[in-house]
Write a protein that binds this DNA or RNA. Structure first.
Lengths: 149, 149
DNA sequence: GCTTGACCTGGAGCGCGCTCCAGGTTGGAG
DNA sequence: CTCCAACCTGGAGCGCGCTCCAGGTCAAGC
């Protein structure tokens, strides 16, 4: 049921072998079990941690903070409040991140629509979109979204 | 109307002075105007580009690709198809990114809810959540989300 | 017992995107 | 004319998160 070779743990978690070793080295994964000969054996619990790290990493948490969380969890049950707070703060940052990403995605879509309104490739001599993308002397990028202030 | 000092351009775009110089050096911003004495003068067009770069950067486009886009735009109107395609591919990657972020955010929320179902700090001797976060010998992280395969 | 591929360690290196620095120049205010 | 903050250049350095390497060990199959 539990006890995975490094390659198996890598395959299941999606992290590379080097990354697994690195995570152990810097104290994210602590005390991974070993065979008599010194080779790592990952448990289901380790894999659970890796799933969490993937989640936190994908949402942009810096490693230092993951370390802090992992350390708190190792310190015992009296740190649950702090762990909860840490995750909540992170969640708030993720929400902000999602809002920003959505906003910039909308800008990107607008820009794409600009290209889609162009009169197809090689429009002939009339070229009727000067006001949107001026190509006169040195002007190249005219989707001059109003800037702050 | 146009003609901004470096500090003003930095303030308006949100990029640092160093970043503005860097972007020019690597060919993102090409041929920024200069005073007789050699100091930069940014135009509204430059600021328009910077807004676009902010959008692309915030959505995770690597600088090499931004360079490519900028170069295409400088190459003239016959590159609009390629530019359009480049942005569309990028938009698709952004959509994937948003889906992933949302998924991992949901996981994070679930984890937070786990903490919120705990019987508050210092629950006394009964401690009734062993099955959710085993704290026996070496087990620390039990939200063992099923892994792939 | 031998082979072979997976694994071990410590430490160096890398790719990205800036960021900082030293040492010198510019240009507007007083 | 003087001052000083803002600007210039080329190049080095940095923080992050891995990634790679050399040189050696382990263990399962034949």
């Amino acid at each position: 049921m539990s006890g995975y070779a490094p390659s198996e743990a890598a395959r299941r978690s999606g992290f590379s072998l080097d990354t697994l070793r690195y995570y152990e080295k810097i104290g994210l994964l602590a005390d991974v079990e070993r065979t008599a000969g010194g080779q790592r054996v990952f448990t289901d619990d380790d894999l659970g941690w890796l799933v969490l790290f993937r989640c936190l990493r994908d949402t942009g948490m810096p490693i230092a903070q993951m370390r802090r969380y992992a350390q708190l969890a190792r310190d015992g049950e009296h740190t649950t409040d702090e762990r909860h707070e840490l995750l909540c703060h992170h969640a708030a940052r993720v929400e902000e991140q999602m809002r920003l990403l959505q906003r910039q995605y909308d800008h990107l879509r607008e820009k794409i629509r600009f290209y889609e309104r162009l009169p197809a490739t090689a429009p002939g001599p009339e070229a009727g979109h000067r006001h949107l993308e001026r190509v006169s002397k040195p002007s190249t990028e005219a989707s001059t979204h109003a800037l702050n202030e």
